[in-house]
Each structure stands twice: as C-alpha cells, then as structure tokens.
Design a protein around this nucleic acid. Structure first.
Length: 415
RNA sequence: GGAGAGGUGGCCGAGUGGUUGAAGGCGCACGACUCGAAAUCGUGUGUAGGGUCAAACCUAUCGAGGGUUCGAAUCCCUCCCUCUCCGCCA
C-alpha cells in the first residue's frame, strides 16, 4: 500500500495515477474522510487512556479507594465502547487503502496494452518456422495428452532432450546471474495469505485471480518466486551498508490461467505450471531506478548470448499491476507468429510491497525508512523452450543447441 | 500426530500484578585518546501514531487475538510459530 501521508499530500495525483492504471474503484476523497474520522476518534480514545493511566498511577502501590475503582471501571467501559467504533472505521479505512495501486513514474506511457512504448530493438525479424508444439511433438519431446490425463488440460510432460535443454537454460542463466552478485535461493512453493497479498497477489475468493489455493490451509501456491522472495525480509530492518540485497530464486510457478484461450496460448506458451528463475532486489529508495536498468540489462544479456532477436517495451499504465511503478518487458521475435511475444518482465515496485510487508532500512544516520523492491525474470523455462524451438530448429528436424548452452548439454551442438 | 519447553528492543538476554519502555551485554552513532586505526573510556540509542518551529508531552507496543483487574510483559483462554523428545517419513 501507499504511505497515508503521501496520499494526504498528493490526493489528486494518487487519484489520477490510479485511474491511469485502470483502477475504477479508487476513491481517494472518501479514503481521506475516513482517515480524518479515524484520527479524530483515535485522539479521543488516547485522551481517555491518558486519564486511565493517570488514575492508575495515583493508586500505584496502595489499595484503591472505592471511588477510584469506580472511576476506573467507568473509564474502562467508555474506552471499550469507543474502541469498538474505531475498529469499524479502521476496517473500512484499511479496505480503501488496499484498493489504491502504486503511483507510476512519470516516464510510464499512459494508456492500455497497445500504448506500451518500444524502446529498443535487437536483431532482425526472420520469418518461417514450424510451430514449437508441432516441432516438439514430432520429436516426442513433449506430452500434453498424458499431462491432461494425469492432471488436466495445459499440463504436460517434457521428455528427453527437451527436458535436458530446460535444465541447461536454467543452469546457464543461473551462472550468469550469480556472476552479477546475486545469491541463489530456493523458496517455499506456497506462501501464507499475508505474504501473498503483501506481494500483490490476489486473495482467496478473487474470481479474477490467477492463484491456486490449498484447501483448509492459509496457503497459496506461488505463481512466481517473487512472492516468497518478497516475503524473505518481511518485518526486518536491514542495514544500509548491506543493500542492495540481490537474490535469484528458482521455483515452479502455478497459474490458473482461467479464461485464457486462443492462438497465443498454444503449447508451452501459457501453461498451468512452469519453472522460472527470478531475480529479486531490495534497494535503497534512491537506488531502485538504476537497479531496474541493471536487471533489465541482465535479461538482455541472457537472450543476446543465446542468440534471439527481441525488443524491449515500457509497459503502459493500464497494463501495470498494483505494485509496479514501472515495468519493462522483453518480447522475443516469434518466427511463427511474425510478431513479438512476451518473454521476460521486470518491475520496480518502489516501496509498495515493502510497506505492505514492513521491510525497512536503517540509514547510516539512524533514520529508518521503507526500502524499495524490484523483480525480474531471469528465465521463464516453458516459454524459453518455445523460443529456442522456434529459432534453433533445423530442416532435418533436429535442434541446434545454442552455443552458450552446450557446456550444460554435455557438449552436444545438436539434439 | 503425542508430550514437554519457549516466543521480550537491530541482535542476545533479565524480568511472574503497579516507580519496567523494559536490567545487562552486543551492535550502532557521537565524543575522548591516536599520526591514523584497533583496544579502552564517556555519552546516546526500540518501533509506530499524535503533538511541536524544535522540544516537552500524550498514546500504543514484550508472537496474535480475547478475558480477569482500578492497573497485565507478568494471571486465564484460544490460535500461530520455534525448540526438545517420541511417532512417522524422503
């Protein structure tokens, strides 16, 4: 959530930015009324408490007189009654606070998906390739039919060399990211509701949500390692000297993907479960913008090294999630579709997630403030296989192993 | 799953009804000493909200929520978590 003080000082801005993100239910004015109401009542309660504290201090160490005891009892009742009223107001206040998305940076394009801005193009736009699914099936590298039998539609098995190739991509990307100073973490594949919502994921019962939930437990299956990585330092105060904290987490990602149909969901492009290496950074507030560029650069380095044409877009406001202040996507050039398709993504969430989960930094001068968090895809595996299958397929049905991956494929140059 | 122990400040750790927001230590900040540093000594140092030009000051906070009491870190109940032993198990 946002800092209430910031909202008070920038009410119009917060309202506008929320609307630009497409959040129609945000009512900043209403929130501020609740805020005022809440503070007024809180002050009243605090006065009553002060009176109670004075009273008990007077009778400390001695038996209270009947009058004092009676006065104390009355105060207790009045405080309890007022607290009940306050609680109801605070619930409404908190609910409103949760509806307000992070404020976007001013260099974020305004508009919907089609308004995202291309900021860089690398490589050309070759055409003509066999669809990745057909190609993989013909080699018996993927089995969606058995995936459906065992779990359901959009579940799959990877077989043989393609499964090994997934592992090679993971290993290559991991080594590269580690060389940039990141620490490898394996993570819980489920998180509790506080961490899930704090990181910006939909709560149980949200029909729009993309999450799977565990029955009878306060657990959400993660849709990305971003959730447990965000929660890693929850409720901690980190030392300025220790920042930035850079982590790379590996996990399966579980997504319901309800209601997503059509061509772009064919095969491995959009599935219920895939593996992903995710970069995550905890930074000083003034350092997050630079870190965002750094994470993007690492993503570029990976795909340049593998050898795939792509472009980078800055995501427009209406296509941003609540926590993000700015997001870049790398989209690879699809030889099959003749269009760019989403491959990786990196977001600067500024202090939004960190405030939710109480992640702070103690500055050198002793001040404590909420820090900034960022996340970025190192590699998303199922989708990476789509890319390699499209770009490295050969006429004889074999697949050339991208050079940088060969050390992780037993030195083979072709599979 | 069963039995027991426990959850206190950035960290460790005292504290079983009222001078305890919390001893002591570590860490950190500042100062002294030093050419400089280490060591040593001194002073300060929880977090959040309100208040103030700034202070003073007020409120909350000892895992979470409820209860008892004039008054709760301290007593009672529920839940969560951690540790030890047993059971089970990759």
């Amino acid at each position: 959530m946002l800092d209430i003080q910031f909202i008070r000082d920038n009410a119009a801005l917060v309202q506008t930015k929320a609307e630009q993100k497409g959040y129609k239910n945000v009512r900043v004015a209403e929130l501020l009324e609740l805020d005022t109401e809440r503070r007024t009542r809180l002050t009243q309660i605090e006065e009553l408490r002060a009176r109670r504290n004075t009273l008990t201090a007077e009778m400390k160490g001695q038996k209270p007189t009947p009058e004092q005891a009676e006065q104390g009892r009355q105060l207790k009742e009045e405080i309890a009654a007022r607290e009940t009223e306050l609680k109801a107001i605070e619930e409404k206040y908190t609910a409103q606070m949760m509806t307000i998305p992070n404020v976007t940076f001013d260099d974020v394009p305004i508009g919907g998906e089609e308004d995202s801005v291309e900021i860089k193009v690398v490589g050309d736009k070759p055409a003509g390739a066999i669809d990745h699914l057909d190609y993989a099936v013909q080699r018996d590298w993927v089995d969606f039919e058995r995936g459906a039998k065992v779990a359901g539609t959009k579940f799959y098995y990877l077989k043989g060399d393609l499964a090994l190739l997934e592992n090679a991509i993971t290993q290559y990307a991991l080594q590269l990211v580690l060389s940039k100073g990141f620490t490898y973490l394996t993570v819980p594949h489920m998180v509790n509701s506080r961490i899930a919502t704090g990181a910006g994921f939909a709560p149980r019962g949200d029909k729009e949500g993309n999450e799977y939930f565990v029955e009878d437990e306060d657990l959400t299956l993660i849709g990305t390692a971003e959730a447990p990585l965000t929660g890693f330092h929850a409720d901690e105060i980190l030392d300025e000297a220790d920042l930035p904290k850079l982590y790379v987490g590996y996990s399966p990602c579980y997504r319901r993907e309800a209601g997503t149909y059509g061509k772009h969901t064919r095969g491995l492009f959009r599935v219920h479960q895939f593996n992903k290496l995710e970069m995550y950074a905890f930074t000083l507030p003034e350092a997050s913008r630079e870190m965002h560029e750094r994470i993007l650069a690492i993503e570029e380095e990976i795909w340049q090294a593998i050898g795939v044409p792509y472009h980078i877009i800055t995501i427009a406001s209406g296509d941003l999630g609540a926590p993000a202040a700015k997001k870049y996507d790398i989209e690879y050039w699809s030889k099959v579709d003749g269009a760019y398709r989403e491959l990786t993504s990196c977001s600067n969430c500024t202090d939004f997630q960190a405030r939710n989960l109480n992640i702070r930094v103690r500055r050198k001068d002793g001040r404590i403030e909420v820090l900034h968090t960022l996340n970025g895809t190192a590699v998303s595996l199922a989708r990476s296989l789509v890319v390699v299958l499209e770009h490295f397929q050969n006429e004889d049905g074999t697949l050339t192993v991208p050079e940088v991956l060969r050390p992780y494929m037993g030195g083979r140059d072709k599979i």
